[in-house]
Measured scan of single mutants.
Amino acid sequence: QVATSTVRILGMTCQSCVKSIEDRISNLKGIISMKVSLEQGSATVKYVPSVVCLQQVCHQIGDMGFEASIAE
């Protein structure tokens, strides 16, 4: 089973930030795809909930120095 959710990301300033986040999160087990939008300050994450949760994704992004939260 696959889920798609949006994560809000604060602190991104350039495409390099976007690429860094996409590269790191895409390597997590259970992540199918991730598309980060600098303009919208968010990311669309396609993932397998039984393998990885959005809290883990937000935590990983937080470790990179950005502020991440699950969009309502």
Rank of each mutant, 00 (worst) to 15 (best):
V36K: 00
V36I: 13
M34Y: 00
V51Q: 10
T44C: 11
M64N: 02
I25H: 01
K46A: 15
V57G: 03
D63W: 09
L54M: 11
T4H: 07
V45C: 05
I61R: 01
L10W: 14
P49F: 08
S33W: 09
E39K: 08
S50N: 07
M34F: 15
Q56M: 15
I21L: 06
C17L: 06
F66S: 02
V57Q: 02
Q40W: 12
G11H: 04
L54G: 01
C17G: 04
V2K: 03
Q55P: 06
M12H: 01
H59Y: 12
V57H: 03
Q55C: 14
N27H: 13
K46R: 06
L38K: 01
K19L: 09
A71Y: 09
V45Q: 01
T6K: 09
E22W: 07
L38Q: 02
K35Q: 10
R8D: 09
G41M: 11
R24E: 12
S42C: 13
C53N: 12
S37Y: 12
V7Q: 00
S37G: 03
G11T: 00
Q55N: 08
R8W: 14
G62T: 14
I25F: 09
A68R: 04
Y47I: 03
I9E: 03
K46Q: 15
A71V: 14
T6C: 10
K19I: 12
S37A: 06
L10S: 10
P49Q: 06
Q40L: 13
V2D: 06
V45S: 01
E39T: 10
M34K: 00
S16N: 12
S26E: 06
G65L: 05
D23L: 12
G30W: 06
V48L: 13
L28P: 01
K19E: 13
A3E: 13
S5F: 05
Q15K: 10
E67K: 12
S20W: 07
R24K: 14
S20P: 03
S33I: 05
C14S: 07
I32D: 01
K46I: 15
E39W: 08
I61D: 02
C58S: 10
F66Q: 03
E22K: 05
I70K: 03
F66W: 05
Q56N: 09
E22S: 05
S26G: 13
T4R: 07
C14G: 06
Q56E: 14
V48S: 14
M34W: 03
D63V: 14
C14F: 02
C53W: 08
S26H: 08
L10N: 11
C17V: 06
C58T: 11
L28G: 02
M12F: 03
A3W: 15
S16G: 09
G30R: 04
I61K: 05
S26P: 02
C17Q: 15
L10V: 13
K19G: 05
T44Y: 14
L10R: 14
M64Q: 01
Q40R: 13
K29R: 12
I31S: 02
I21T: 01
L38Y: 09
V18H: 02
K35M: 08
Q60C: 05
D63S: 11
M34I: 15
S50W: 07
V7H: 00
H59E: 14
I32N: 00
V52G: 01
G11R: 00
S16C: 05
Q40T: 12
I25Y: 03
R24S: 12
S69R: 11
F66C: 04
V7N: 01
A71F: 10
V7T: 01
E67G: 07
G30K: 03
T4S: 07
H59M: 14
T44G: 04
K19Q: 11
L38C: 06
E39D: 12
E22R: 04
K29G: 08
E22L: 07
I21H: 01
T13M: 11
E22N: 04
V18P: 12
I25V: 09
C14L: 03
K35R: 10
I21S: 02
V45F: 04
M12G: 04
K35A: 08
M64P: 02
G30D: 03
R8P: 06
S20D: 12
T44L: 13
V57N: 03
Q1N: 07
C14D: 07
D63R: 11
M34Q: 00
E39F: 09
F66T: 02
I9V: 05
V57Y: 03
T44R: 12
K19P: 01
S69F: 13
V48R: 09
C17A: 06
E22Y: 08
L38I: 06
V52D: 02
S33N: 07
S33E: 10
K29V: 11
S69A: 08
A68Q: 03
Q1T: 08
K29Q: 11
D23V: 11
I21K: 00
E67M: 10
K29W: 11
V48E: 15
K29C: 09
S50A: 12
E22F: 08
M64I: 08
S20K: 15
S5Y: 05
L10F: 12
L38S: 02
I61P: 01
L10T: 13
Q1F: 05
L28S: 03
R8L: 11
S20T: 13
C58G: 08
M34C: 10
R8G: 07
K19W: 09
S37T: 07
Y47C: 05
S26C: 09
C58D: 04
L10H: 11
I31T: 01
G11L: 06
E22D: 01
M64T: 02
L10Y: 13
R24L: 07
T13S: 10
L28M: 13
T6S: 08
Q40P: 04
G41R: 15
N27S: 13
E72D: 12
I70Y: 15
G65S: 03
G11C: 07
V57F: 02
S50E: 15
S26Y: 07
T4D: 04
V51N: 02
I25P: 00
Q15T: 08
S42W: 08
V45E: 03
T6Y: 14
G11M: 04
D23T: 11
D23A: 10
Q60W: 12
Q40D: 12
D23R: 12
G65M: 05
S5M: 09
C53P: 08
M34N: 00
Q40I: 08
E72T: 14
V45A: 01
V51D: 07
G65Y: 06
L38T: 01
T6N: 09
L10D: 09
C14Q: 02
S16M: 13
T44M: 12
S5L: 07
E39H: 11
S33H: 10
A43F: 04
I25R: 01
G62F: 12
Q1E: 15
T6L: 12
G30L: 08
A71T: 11
G62M: 14
I70A: 08
G30A: 04
S50Q: 07
M12A: 03
G65H: 03
V51W: 06
I61H: 04
I70N: 05
I31A: 00
N27V: 11
G41D: 06
Y47T: 02
Y47P: 00
E22I: 08
C58I: 15
T13I: 11
G30P: 04
V36P: 01
V51A: 06
I61L: 11
I21M: 02
R8V: 12
Y47A: 03
E22H: 07
H59W: 12
C14K: 00
C17T: 05
E39Q: 10
S50D: 15
E72Q: 10
S42I: 13
H59T: 13
A43D: 03
M64D: 02
K19A: 09
V52S: 02
A43Q: 03
A71S: 12
V36S: 00
I31D: 00
Q56R: 09
S42L: 14
G41L: 08
M34S: 03
A43C: 06
T13D: 06
P49S: 07
I21N: 02
V45M: 04
L54F: 03
C58L: 15
C58Q: 12
G62H: 13
